[in-house]
């Protein structure tokens, strides 16, 4: 009878070890979830800050529009990390704006497209893309912690492409 289990496990206090282990794991998971939530969720009193950029991708070294400038290094680095065929990326427009909890804002990026960002209970954002007629063509909901980027993209004429980069900066 006494040899059914290892000797150490016959001591009563060791039987609570699995429980302690479970509690520790659950606490760690809750803490992690809380961290993510806190990272995503903004207190009611403050507001989130977002940045959206309209980017044009091409293999040409220069943009025909002198107002275009190369994208900032951070975006460029991220674009280089994914398998895209374009060599140059130009910033067409960039906007920064704040968003209160459960608020939404629509930002025109050009005459041909605009983007709407809506906060969902401080946990997720809903990003909606509109075409030049004002028609919603795409909508996505996802958590967007600080520093993460959501890139909406598509083909443009002459084998170029457009990108709308949505980034939470605060």
């Amino acid at each position: 009878m006494r040899n059914e289990f290892p000797c150490a496990f016959q001591r009563g206090w060791l039987a609570v070890l699995p429980l302690l282990l479970m509690v520790c794991c659950l606490r760690a998971e809750v803490a992690q979830t809380t961290d993510v939530t806190q990272a995503t969720e903004i207190a009611d009193s403050s507001e989130m800050k977002f940045e959206v950029q309209l980017i044009w991708a091409t293999n040409d070294k220069k943009s025909p529009n002198p107002k275009h400038k190369p994208v900032e290094p951070e975006i460029r680095k991220k674009l280089d990390e994914i398998p895209l065929k374009w060599e140059n990326y130009f910033e067409v427009n960039r906007k920064q704006f704040g968003l209160v909890k459960d608020g939404k804002t629509k930002q025109p990026l050009s005459e041909k497209c605009s983007v709407e960002i809506k906060d969902i209970q401080g946990r997720k954002v809903e990003v909606t893309l509109f075409d030049k007629t004002g028609k919603a063509v795409f909508e996505r909901k996802q958590p967007l912690p600080k520093g993460e980027i959501l890139l909406l993209s598509g083909n443009a004429p002459d084998k170029t492409a457009w990108f709308v980069a949505v980034k939470r900066i605060e």
Binding site: L54, W56, P64, N65, K67, K78, E81, I82, V92, N93, S110, E111, K112, C113, L129, D131, K132, T133, K135, V137, F138, R140, Q142, P145, G147, E148, I149, L150, L151, L152, S153, G154, N155, A156, P157, D158, T160, W162
Partner: peptide, 30 residues
Amino acid sequence: RDYAAGMTLVWLSYPAENGFADFAPDDTLN
């Protein structure tokens, strides 16, 4: 989705010339 880079890329096949850009290259997007 690139988890390491913290980036999500969504590619739309929506005809760009209909919504986001015109045919003329210098008129693209803006």
